[in-house]
Amino acid sequence: MDYLFVFLLGSVLGSFYNVLIYRLPRRESIISPPSHCPSCGSKIRWYDNIPIISYFLLKGKCRDCFASISLRYPLVEFLSGLLALLCYFKWSLSFESFVMFVFFSLLLILSFIDWDTFTLPDSLNLGGLAFGLVSSFFRENFTFWDSVVGALVGAVPFFLIYIFYVKVRKIEGIGFGDVKLMAFIGSVAGVWGVASAVFLGSLFGLLYAIPLIIKYKNISFAVPYGPFLSLGCFVGVMLRDWLSPIILQQ
């Protein structure tokens, strides 16, 4: 029952994450107006706002105007519930579990926003960086200096790449939001999280891009880097106990 409760709690929070994903890029208030249909503007009733379940009860359509509801809404709620479950499973009921759930939740929100808009809001990136630095004072096996070094190791190389593309090649190879994202990742997950984000994230990005390159027979398309960096970090952190011995033996 405790695992079920944790999943349900995470799913409820995922409903709020959907609000952030939709409203932050549009610079809308996350408080007012209440949740409403983006098509007809009708207020969503409480019984139509039950995470995951309401989507299927409504058959993916607004009760009032019958406009389609994106499958993303229950997907984010499910992923948020899954994150809560995995954090509880790995770190039990602890401060570390809380820190990592907040961390992964912010990465989830940032990933969906970046996928839609190719932007990473400072409110989440810099807020996450501050959270990483402050929370490091209260973590058992992660110090403030681990947080600072992780943030620098994450941000500096990406900043230099950003400058190279902008000043030398006169194009934006990576966004400055990615620089801030890597600082945020490093502040919470340290150097290991940064390395995981870069190497695993690049691998996941390549696996996504190869079919597109084959399909369109060119490489002239843009892919948001944030979601892959976030996924790489998540996998690296969750599987660290398994990956570390393998890497150290090489």
Rank of each mutant, 00 (worst) to 15 (best):
L207E: 08
S105F: 00
A151D: 01
F199R: 03
L106T: 14
G128Y: 00
L152I: 15
P224R: 05
V166K: 13
L200A: 12
L200F: 14
W192A: 11
S111E: 08
V102R: 01
V179A: 08
P121V: 08
Y165G: 08
S123G: 07
R139W: 00
L181I: 03
F199K: 08
G154Q: 05
P211L: 10
L203F: 15
S123H: 00
Y225G: 09
W115Q: 09
G201C: 11
V188M: 01
Y208V: 11
A209Q: 11
F184W: 07
A183Y: 06
P157W: 08
V156H: 01
D114Q: 07
L120S: 10
V102W: 00
L124H: 04
V223Y: 05
K170S: 12
A183N: 11
N125E: 03
I163Q: 15
F184S: 06
I171E: 15
F199V: 14
I171T: 14
E172D: 12
G132E: 02
Y162K: 09
L207P: 04
G173P: 10
S105Q: 00
A183Q: 02
T117S: 11
G132L: 04
T117D: 04
L124F: 10
L108V: 02
V194Y: 01
A151R: 04
L110D: 00
S123K: 11
Y208N: 14
G193I: 03
A155L: 09
F144P: 01
S105R: 00
F137R: 01
K215A: 14
S147Q: 11
L207V: 14
L106N: 12
G205F: 15
F159S: 11
F164S: 10
I210R: 07
I213E: 01
I163F: 14
G201H: 13
V188W: 03
V194G: 03
D114P: 09
L152N: 07
L106D: 05
D122F: 04
A151S: 07
F144Y: 08
V99Q: 06
L106P: 03
E172W: 08
M100A: 07
W145K: 12
L126W: 10
F144C: 00
V188N: 04
L207D: 06
A189F: 05
K217A: 05
V191S: 01
F103Y: 15
P211V: 12
S196F: 01
G173M: 12
Y208G: 13
N125R: 02
G190C: 05
F101M: 12
K215R: 15
G128R: 01
V148L: 13
F118Y: 15
V153K: 02
V188H: 00
I171N: 10
K215Q: 13
V188Y: 00
G150P: 05
L107P: 05
V166Q: 13
G175R: 14
D114C: 10
T143A: 11
F176K: 02
V166H: 10
I185S: 04
N125P: 04
A151Y: 02
F199I: 15
I171R: 11
G128C: 03
L212Y: 15
G132Y: 03
F176G: 05
W145L: 15
D122C: 01
L181E: 01
Y208C: 14
P211R: 09
F221D: 11
P211Y: 13
E140V: 15
S202I: 06
R169W: 10
G177V: 10
F184V: 05
Y216Q: 13
E140T: 13
I219C: 13
T143G: 14
S187Y: 00
D146T: 06
L181T: 03
